[in-house]
């Protein structure tokens, strides 16, 4: 089952190709934290930051609304949970909206099948960076 999901996700990433044009506002903006809840309609892997592994992104149909929001989870290696299309998810994240109306939420917490996954801290520091005090290369949003 898990292998199947991964295959779908990889295929989706291949099909999705480069991400659409992004705005400079796509960072974890603590002023724009929102709660979200909905149903997973699509699972994709997308390059989100320069020099990093592709990110797991869920296309979530928001509950009670007919619109879809992209929920940026984490690098795919960090999120060790099965995700299936049609599953209910909810969580907390920072919402950004591109000029073309594309809505993206950088998730800080994601609840799936009752289990809460903490992806970032309250200021948006990524959990997969751990407590390492090592220096990192630049992670600018967008595709190089």
């Amino acid at each position: 089952m898990r292998r199947g999901i991964l295959f779908i996700a990889l295929l989706a990433a291949f099909v999705a190709g480069p991400a659409a044009a992004q705005t400079a506002g796509h960072f974890y903006n603590v002023d724009k934290e929102v709660r979200f809840e909905g149903t997973v309609r699509e699972i994709v892997l997308e390059p989100r930051y320069k020099g990093t592994a592709p990110f797991l992104v869920l296309r979530v149909e928001e509950a009670g609304q007919a619109r879809t929001v992209s929920v940026e989870i984490s690098p795919s290696w960090f999120f060790g949970e099965d995700v299936h299309g049609g599953e209910k998810v909810k969580g907390i994240g920072s919402l950004s909206e591109a000029a073309d109306g594309t809505r993206t939420i950088i998730a800080r917490e994601l609840q799936i099948r009752g289990k809460v996954h903490t992806l970032r801290d309250k200021r948006g520091f990524p959990g997969w960076q751990g407590g390492s005090r090592g220096r990192r290369g630049p992670r600018r949003f967008g595709i190089s």
Partner: peptide, 16 residues
């Protein structure tokens, strides 16, 4: 925000 860079993905800890 006009432009930004961070060594940690999406991490810009500022409350405007």
């Amino acid at each position: 925000v006009l432009a930004w860079n961070s060594r940690f993905e999406g991490y810009l800890p500022i409350s405007l």
